[in-house]
Amino acid sequence: MTVRVFLVSSAESEAFGQARFDDGTSPLTAAGERRARAGASELPGAGAYSTASSVRCRRTAHLLGVDAAEQPALRDWDLGRWRGLRLDEVSAAEPEGVADWLADPGAAPHGGEALAELCARVGGWLDGRAPDGGRVLAVVEPAVVRAAVVHGLGLPPQAFWRMDVLPLTVTELSGRAGRWNLRCGRPLTG
């Protein structure tokens, strides 16, 4: 049976505006909070609700009026010792490490999770959704949305770097394990 998975990217946080590798504690901006409240009426209905464990995702879910269970498989990308740093800082300090990270899906110069591992983790969660059909909504980080699309469409991991996921957009994957269709980035507008 077909399952519909609605992935809602979290509202804008302070880390997003600074191009910072978030450590999971970055609060939402005031504008992000307003947009989440306003977008609640546009949220698609579902039979099951999940969220990542970050402050940003849990707060977004709350503002959207969603009572969601935290799912460990939906946690943000573990970027190890780069967490909390801005991309320009890491690029200046470790140019070879950043180059390897961008070129090789198996590389983890930061000591955290490789891109291939992220895609496999999120893909495992996606493929395990409601084999008997239904609708699932999850509030997640943009990296998780991108990993789900890469896995769901069977794209090469490098395609991850070619996608932008804006705050408070809904990406829909419908189908089942091994066969997913994509509906991209509908904004939640209040």
Rank of each mutant, 00 (worst) to 15 (best):
G133W: 06
G32K: 04
D104L: 07
E96C: 07
A48G: 01
R146H: 05
A114W: 12
V165P: 02
A147I: 08
V139C: 01
V165Y: 12
R75Q: 06
E117K: 09
R86S: 08
R56D: 00
W125A: 05
A73D: 14
E70K: 00
H62E: 15
A92E: 15
L43G: 02
A120W: 14
A130L: 10
T60C: 06
V145A: 04
A38Q: 05
D76E: 15
T60I: 08
L85D: 09
P72A: 11
D132N: 07
S91N: 10
V122C: 11
A147V: 07
P95R: 09
V98D: 09
E33W: 04
D132P: 01
L118P: 04
P131Q: 07
W101S: 05
H62L: 13
R146A: 13
V149K: 11
A48T: 11
E42L: 02
R75C: 05
E89R: 05
L102K: 11
A114K: 08
P131D: 10
C119T: 15
V66T: 03
V55H: 14
D76R: 04
R146Y: 01
F160L: 12
A107Q: 13
C57K: 03
A143W: 05
D67A: 15
G65H: 07
R83I: 08
G128C: 05
A138P: 00
E94L: 10
A138L: 03
Y49E: 06
T51Q: 03
V136W: 09
R58E: 08
L126M: 10
D104V: 09
S50G: 04
C57G: 02
E42M: 08
V139Y: 04
E141R: 08
V145T: 01
A40F: 03
H151P: 07
A130T: 13
W101Y: 15
V139N: 00
A36K: 01
A147E: 06
G97W: 15
R58Y: 09
R121K: 06
G80S: 08
D132T: 11
L85P: 06
P105C: 12
G39E: 00
V98Q: 10
L63P: 11
C57W: 02
A93K: 14
A73P: 03
A116I: 13
S91H: 12
V165G: 04
D88T: 12
E141S: 02
A103Q: 13
R162H: 15
D127V: 07
G32N: 01
P156Q: 14
A48R: 14
V90Y: 09
L87K: 09
D78W: 04
P72V: 03
P142D: 03
Y49I: 00
D76W: 03
A108W: 14
W82T: 04
P72K: 00
D127Q: 11
L166E: 14
D67Q: 14
R121A: 07
L137S: 00
E42G: 04
A93V: 12
L63W: 11
